[in-house]
Simulated assay, not measured.
Amino acid sequence: MAIEVIATKRVLEGTGASRRLRRAGQTPAVVYGAGKEAVSITLDHNTMYYALKTEAFHNEVLDLVIDGQKEQVKVAAFQNHPFKQLVLHIDFARV
């Protein structure tokens, strides 16, 4: 069973841009590894919040679709807010 995650590239980076994304219901993330350059992306927050609660999301190879291009990735790390139900950032590693 392949889990598919939909993402879009982001052009604005930095603390202020990430705050604006989070207020708009998005989660900033990055994809790196496999000898390719790192790509900054955005994901839907609610989708990621509930997906991170499942064990399969952490253990399986995911199909990450970035603006129509599919890559295989695994969740490398993620950050949650200390007391709010908020995913702050996710790192994906290419397989």
Score class of each variant (00 low, 15 high):
64 L>N: 04
70 K>L: 13
63 D>P: 00
19 R>Y: 11
14 G>S: 07
49 Y>A: 11
61 V>M: 05
60 E>D: 11
85 Q>G: 10
8 T>V: 15
16 G>N: 11
34 A>M: 11
66 I>Q: 07
64 L>D: 08
84 K>L: 15
60 E>S: 13
8 T>D: 10
69 Q>H: 11
7 A>L: 06
52 L>F: 09
11 V>C: 03
26 Q>E: 15
24 A>R: 12
64 L>C: 08
39 V>H: 12
30 V>D: 01
73 V>G: 08
12 L>T: 06
20 R>G: 04
69 Q>T: 15
21 L>A: 11
82 P>G: 08
26 Q>G: 03
54 T>K: 15
42 T>G: 06
92 F>Y: 14
47 T>W: 02
71 E>H: 10
7 A>C: 01
40 S>P: 01
76 A>R: 10
77 A>G: 09
59 N>R: 14
84 K>N: 13
69 Q>E: 15
50 Y>F: 02
89 H>M: 03
89 H>I: 03
45 H>Q: 04
61 V>R: 08
90 I>W: 09
32 Y>L: 10
83 F>D: 00
1 M>I: 04
52 L>H: 01
12 L>M: 13
57 F>C: 10
77 A>S: 15
88 L>G: 00
78 F>P: 09
86 L>S: 09
37 E>P: 11
71 E>G: 07
23 R>I: 11
55 E>I: 10
8 T>A: 15
6 I>M: 10
55 E>W: 07
79 Q>Y: 05
51 A>P: 06
82 P>C: 07
80 N>E: 04
27 T>S: 07
16 G>Y: 07
64 L>S: 09
93 A>E: 02
31 V>K: 05
9 K>R: 13
79 Q>D: 08
83 F>C: 00
57 F>T: 06
37 E>V: 14
34 A>K: 15
17 A>I: 02
18 S>L: 09
42 T>M: 09
25 G>N: 12
49 Y>V: 01
68 G>T: 02
16 G>E: 12
2 A>G: 06
80 N>H: 12
21 L>D: 09
91 D>C: 02
32 Y>G: 05
54 T>L: 04
39 V>P: 00
91 D>V: 02
75 V>M: 08
34 A>S: 15
25 G>P: 11
11 V>K: 08
53 K>A: 13
57 F>D: 09
14 G>P: 06
62 L>D: 03
38 A>T: 14
57 F>A: 10
93 A>P: 00
65 V>K: 02
15 T>H: 10
87 V>P: 15
21 L>M: 12
70 K>P: 00
74 K>E: 14
64 L>K: 08
75 V>S: 07
15 T>F: 03
11 V>D: 13
55 E>S: 13
90 I>A: 07
84 K>H: 14
66 I>V: 15
10 R>M: 13
23 R>Y: 03
86 L>W: 00
62 L>E: 04
3 I>S: 04
63 D>K: 10
20 R>T: 05
75 V>D: 05
70 K>V: 14
87 V>S: 05
67 D>C: 02
69 Q>S: 09
67 D>F: 06
76 A>F: 14
55 E>N: 11
14 G>A: 11
7 A>S: 05
88 L>I: 11
55 E>D: 14
22 R>G: 03
95 V>E: 15
82 P>S: 12
10 R>F: 13
75 V>W: 03
52 L>M: 08
